[in-house]
Simulated scan of single mutants.
Amino acid sequence: MPSIHLRCASPADAAPICAIYHPYVANTAITFEEEAVTTPDMAQRIADVHGAGLPWLVLEVDGKLAGYAYATRWRVRPAYRHSVESTIYLDAAFTGRGLGRVLYGALLDELGKRGLHMVIGGIALPNDSSVGLHEALGFRKAAHFTEVGLKFGRWIDVGYWERKL
C-alpha cells in the first residue's frame, strides 16, 4: 500500500505543482490557460488563496506530490462570500486510483469546516472523468455554456456543477 499524505500547500510547492499543471495547459482544453505558469506566479497564487482564508491542499503519495486542490472566491461581490469555485489536478501518473476522491473529499471537508455554503466546479466539456468525480462527490449539474472558450482552434463548452456543503 502506498503512503498517502494530505497537507496544506505552501509557496515552496510551486515547482512541483507547475510540473503537474503544465501538461494540462500545453496539451488539453481542461484549463483555458494557454501559457505555462511560472514557479513564482504559482507561488503567488498559493499565497493569494491562503491570504483569502481559503484552502489549497496537496496530496503526496510515497513522498511525491501527486495532486492538488484548492478553492477561490466565486465572485467578488460581498453577497457571494459563502460560495467558492473548486479546482483539482492530479499528476497523470496517479489518475485512476481513487486519489482524486480522497483529495477532493478533503477539500470539501475543509470548506465545510470554514462555514462555506456552496462549492462550484467548472468543467471544460467533454470530460467524463471530471464529471464522474464531481457527481460521485455529490455535485449536480447546474449550468452549461456553449462555445465560451477557444483553445487549439476549437470552441469549447463549459459546464458548472454545484454542491451545497
Rank of each mutant, 00 (worst) to 15 (best):
Lys164Gly: 06
Glu60His: 05
Pro55Ala: 03
Thr31Lys: 05
Gly98Ser: 09
Lys64Ser: 13
Ala79Tyr: 14
Ala79Lys: 12
Gly121Cys: 07
Val58Ile: 14
Gly132Pro: 08
Arg101Asn: 07
Ala36His: 11
Phe145Pro: 13
Ala92Gly: 13
Arg73His: 14
Gly100Phe: 07
Ala69Leu: 10
Ala124Pro: 09
Gly63Leu: 03
Leu165Glu: 00
Gly149Phe: 06
Ser86Ala: 15
Tyr104Ser: 03
Val148Leu: 12
Leu59Asn: 00
Asp41Phe: 08
Arg97Phe: 01
Leu59Lys: 02
Gly159Arg: 05
Tyr21His: 10
Cys18Leu: 11
Ile46Pro: 04
Tyr160Trp: 15
Arg7Gln: 08
Ser10Gln: 15
Asp157Ala: 13
Leu150Tyr: 12
Ala47Met: 11
Leu54Trp: 08
Ser3Asn: 15
Gly98Trp: 10
Val119Gln: 13
Val102Gly: 05
Ala47Trp: 09
His144Glu: 08
Asp41Cys: 08
Val25Tyr: 05
Gly51Gln: 06
Val102Leu: 14
Tyr21Cys: 04
Val158Pro: 01
Arg73Leu: 14
Ser3Cys: 12
Gly132Met: 12
Ile17Thr: 01
Leu103Arg: 03
Leu133Ser: 05
Glu60Met: 04
Gly67Ser: 07
Ala14His: 09
Val37Tyr: 03
Leu90Gln: 06
Ala69Thr: 00
Asp128Val: 02
Leu111Ser: 04
Pro23His: 04
Leu6Asn: 02
Ser10Asn: 10
Ala69Gln: 05
Asp91Arg: 04
Ile17Arg: 06
Leu107Trp: 00
Tyr160Ser: 09
Leu103Ile: 01
Leu108Glu: 03
Tyr68Cys: 12
Phe152Ala: 11
Ala29Thr: 12
Glu85Val: 04
Leu57Gly: 01
Ala69Met: 09
Leu103Gly: 01
Pro11Asn: 11
Tyr89Lys: 06
Ala142Asp: 10
Ala66Ser: 06
Leu57Gln: 03
Val37Arg: 05
Gly105Lys: 10
Ala124Lys: 08
Val158Thr: 04
Glu85Cys: 13
Arg45Gln: 14
Thr87Glu: 10
Leu150Thr: 00
Thr95Phe: 06
Ile17Gln: 02
Pro126His: 13
Val76Met: 15
Asp48Thr: 09
Arg73Val: 04
Thr95Gln: 15
Arg75Glu: 10
Gly159Phe: 04
Thr87Lys: 14
Ala71Gly: 14
Ala92Leu: 07
Val148Gly: 09
Gly122Glu: 03
Met42Ile: 00
Phe152Met: 13
Asp91Gly: 07
Tyr70Ala: 11
Ile88Lys: 05
Gln44Asn: 11
Arg114Leu: 14
Val49Met: 09
Asp62Pro: 03
Cys18Tyr: 08
Ser10Met: 13
Arg114Phe: 02
Glu60Thr: 00
Trp74Gly: 00
Thr95Met: 12
Glu60Gln: 08
Ala66Gln: 01
Ala47Cys: 11
Leu165Thr: 00
Phe32His: 04
Ala36Asn: 14
Ala79Leu: 09
Gly96Phe: 10
Arg75Trp: 15
